[in-house]
């Protein structure tokens, strides 16, 4: 299908690229179908509603942000995403991008967890973890 997006203009999305959120993203429960969009080889991705309209979120793959991100997935999550192997899952981190880019934060505690094989996703709010909801991406880096 073809969608008109705010950020990338017209995008061609294959049906196989659509991911379905059984419970919606927190605060946006009415919208269930999204696609992960990447322009060229950019490290900056979009989690875009397939309507082409909002909601859309700036997301990153964890390895762009920090090394060794390995959240422990509760068994209920595996069940909802229809797998018994956590290694089937891929994570995307939602970012808040302020005017001053150096102040950008990502939510490590509430990753978007995707089973790409089954095209299922959910936002998981991790319990009992040290991962921050407002992890400063450029913390401690010189200007």
């Amino acid at each position: 299908m073809r969608i008109q997006t705010k950020d990338y203009g017209v995008c061609e999305i294959d049906d196989k690229e659509v991911i379905h959120f059984k419970q919606g993203i927190l605060g946006f429960e009415d919208v269930r179908e999204y696609a992960i969009l990447r322009r060229n080889d950019s490290p900056v991705l979009r989690l875009q509603s397939i309507s082409g309209e909002n909601p859309r979120f700036v997301v990153f793959e964890p390895e762009q942000i920090l090394a060794g991100y390995k959240p422990k997935m509760p068994s209920e999550v595996l069940k909802i995403l229809e797998t018994d192997d956590a290694s089937d899952l891929q994570y995307f981190l939602i970012a808040v991008v302020p005017n001053v880019i150096k102040d950008m934060t990502v939510n490590l505690k509430s990753p978007i967890v995707v089973n790409l094989e089954k095209r299922l996703a959910m936002q998981v709010v991790l319990d009992g973890t040290e991962y921050s909801m407002r992890h400063r991406v450029f913390e401690g880096k010189a200007e």
Binding site: I25, L26, G27, F28, N54, P55, R56, F57, V58, I94, A95, V96, V97, P98, N107, S110, Q123, M133, R134
Partner: peptide
């Protein structure tokens, strides 16, 4: 935070 992300 999700709402802030969308705003941003």
């Amino acid at each position: 935070i999700n709402k802030e992300s969308l705003e941003s």
